[in-house]
Simulated assay, not measured.
Amino acid sequence: MSGRLKPLLLALALLLLAAVLLSPVGQGLWHSLVTGIIQQQRTLHRGLAGAMMALSRREGVGDWLDLMLLSMGYGVFHALGPGHGKAVVATYLLTHRAALTRGLIMTASAALLQGVVAIAMVTILVLGLGWLTREAMAGTAWVEKASFAAVTALGIWLMVRAGQGLRRLRVETAPSPSPANSVSPGALRLTPAPSTGASVVTPLDHVASGPCHCGRTHHIDPMTSGRHWREMTAAIFSIGLRPCSGAVMVLGVAAMLGFWWAGVLAVLAMSVGTALSTSLLAALTVLARVRMAHLFQRADARRPLGLGYFLALLGGALITLLGIALLINTPGTALSPLMQGPLG
Rank of each mutant, 00 (worst) to 15 (best):
P203N: 03
I236F: 01
W229E: 07
C214P: 07
G210M: 01
P211K: 14
L204Q: 13
L204R: 14
S238W: 05
S225C: 05
A208G: 07
L204E: 10
A208M: 03
T217N: 00
S238P: 06
P222Y: 06
S195A: 05
F237W: 10
T196C: 11
P203G: 00
D221F: 08
T202A: 03
S195L: 08
H206K: 13
P211A: 15
P222A: 10
R216K: 08
R227A: 12
T233V: 10
M223I: 03
S195P: 01
H219F: 15
V200H: 07
C212D: 15
H219R: 14
I236M: 01
H228C: 09
E231L: 14
S225M: 06
D221T: 09
A235N: 11
I236Y: 02
W229D: 09
H228M: 14
S225H: 03
T202I: 04
S209E: 10
R216D: 08
P211H: 10
S238E: 04
P222Q: 06
G215T: 04
T233I: 08
I220T: 11
A198S: 13
T202L: 00
H228T: 15
R227N: 13
G226Y: 12
D205Y: 14
S225F: 03
H218Q: 14
E231R: 10
F237P: 01
R230F: 04
G197N: 04
P222H: 08
L204S: 08
T196Y: 12
P211S: 14
C212Y: 06
P211M: 12
I220R: 09
S225D: 06
S238D: 05
T202G: 00
V201L: 01
H219K: 09
F237D: 03
T196R: 10
R230P: 01
S195R: 05
W229C: 07
T224E: 03
A235S: 15
A235V: 11
P211V: 15
R230S: 04
H213R: 05
S209V: 09
L204M: 13
I236G: 01
A198R: 11
C212N: 08
S225R: 07
M223H: 13
C214E: 11
D205I: 13
I220H: 08
A234Q: 02
A235Y: 12
P222F: 08
D205K: 14
P203D: 02
A208S: 08
S238Y: 07
T217H: 05
S195E: 02
H206C: 12
P222V: 10
G197L: 03
E231A: 15
V207F: 14
T196D: 09
T224N: 01
V200I: 13
A198N: 12
F237R: 04
V201F: 00
A234Y: 00
G197T: 04
F237M: 09
A234T: 01
A208V: 02
P211T: 14
I220N: 06
S209I: 07
T233L: 14
R227V: 13
G210Y: 01
S209W: 09
E231M: 14
I220P: 02
S199C: 05
M223Y: 07
H213D: 05
G226P: 09
C214Q: 07
A235L: 12
H218P: 15
V207E: 11
C214V: 05
A198T: 13
H218N: 13
I236L: 00
G197Y: 04
V200P: 03
G210L: 02
A235M: 10
A234W: 01
A208Q: 06
I220W: 06
V207A: 09
A208C: 07
R216W: 07
G215S: 06
D205P: 07
